[in-house]
Design a protein around this nucleic acid. Structure first.
Lengths: 157, 157
DNA sequence: TTTTTAGTTCTGTAGTTGCAGAACTAAAAA
DNA sequence: TTTTTAGTTCTGCAACTACAGAACTAAAAA
C-alpha cells in the first residue's frame, strides 16, 4: 500500500512550477519539490514516507532534502502522541523572517560595495557617485522596512 | 608584454569577494569575476585582453563571460575612434533597473503563490491566511516602490 | 529476544558545469 | 595579397551535483 498523497494533475504541475521557482532561488531540485509539495498539498503536515512516495524520491534523497530544509528553517515538524513519525510542514507562516533575511543579504551587498567604494580612486567621480547611490538606497530601504510593515498592517485593517 | 591591469593584493582579494557575492546571486564564476573587476579596477573601461589577462582567463572563458554579461545587461561597452577594440564597463549606473528587476521577480513569486492559494481547500484557514498575507505584502511592497524612490531622493537633498 | 519502524549514511554513477586549449573567422592593416 | 587583430566557436575533460540503491542503525513494538 502506498502512502502517496492523492493529487490532481493540476496540483502535480503546480508543484513542479513552485519547485522550479525555488530552484531559481538557488535551492536544489529535490528540496524544491518538498517545499512545493508542502505548499500545494491539501494536507499540510506530511510524513517522511508521504513526501517520499508522493514525489517518487529515494529514501536518501528524501532524508537529505528534509534535513537540508530543516536546517535552513524552511520547514519544521510536529509529532503526534503514540506515533513515532514526524510530520513535516512548511514554515510559510514565518514569511516575515524570510523577508528580513532577504533584506539582510541586500545589506551585505551594500557593505561590500562600500568596501569597493572605499578603495576607489578619486578620478572617477561619476562612477563613484553611482556606487554611493546604490549603497545609500539599500541603507534607506533597510531603515524603511519596519515602517513598511506597520503601514502595510494599517492598510489592511 | 602584458595587458594586465596592475592591482594591489587588496584589490585582487576584493575582486574575489565581490565575485563570490555575485556567484551567490546565481552568476557563474568567470562572469562574476569580470563584473567584480569592472567595479574594483581604477580604470573602469577595460578591453577584452585587459580583462582576460588580469583575471588569467582563457579566451573562450573571457568571450563567453563577456557575451553573457552583455546580454544580461550587466555590462556594456564603448569604442574609441581609430581603435578596433571594445572597452567594457559596468552598468552599475543603471542600478535602479536592477532593483526594478528584483522586485519584478518578487511579484512573480506572489503570482505563483496566488495560484497555490486559488487551489487550496478551505479547511486549512490558518495556512491559507498566511499565504494570503505573503501575497498581499509583496503587492504592497510593489506599489510602494515608486514612493520609496521619491522619498529617498528627498531624504538626500 | 526478535522484528519493525523511521529514518540515516555510504557507495556508485549519470548528468551537468565551467573552463582550457586549439582551431577558426571576419575585418582591418600592412 | 598577406598578416594582424579581436575576438568566436569547437572539442575535450576534470570537477561537481544530485540522486538511486543498498547497507546500516537506534529506538520502539511485538
Amino acid at each position: 500500500m502506498s502512502d502517496a498523497i492523492n493529487l490532481t494533475e493540476e496540483q502535480k504541475q503546480l508543484i513542479e512550477k513552485v519547485g522550479v521557482m525555488h530552484e531559481k532561488g538557488g535551492l536544489q531540485p529535490a528540496p524544491s519539490r518538498v517545499v512545493a509539495l508542502l505548499l500545494v498539498s491539501p494536507d499540510t503536515e506530511l510524513s517522511f514516507d508521504q513526501i517520499r512516495e508522493t514525489l517518487n524520491l529515494s529514501k536518501s534523497a528524501s532524508s537529505n532534502a528534509i534535513n537540508m530544509l530543516l536546517s535552513a528553517e524552511k520547514i519544521d515538524y510536529i509529532t503526534k502522541p503514540g506515533d513515532r513519525k514526524r510530520y513535516f510542514r512548511s514554515k510559510i507562516a514565518f514569511w516575515k523572517d524570510d523577508i528580513k533575511k532577504e533584506f539582510k543579504l541586500f545589506s551585505r551587498v551594500a557593505e561590500i560595495m562600500q568596501e569597493v567604494l572605499d578603495q576607489r580612486p578619486d578620478n572617477t567621480p561619476d562612477f563613484n557617485n553611482k556606487l554611493s547611490e546604490v549603497i545609500d538606497f539599500i541603507e534607506f530601504l533597510n531603515n524603511e522596512l519596519p515602517g513598511l510593515y506597520t503601514r502595510w498592517e494599517q492598510s489592511r485593517s
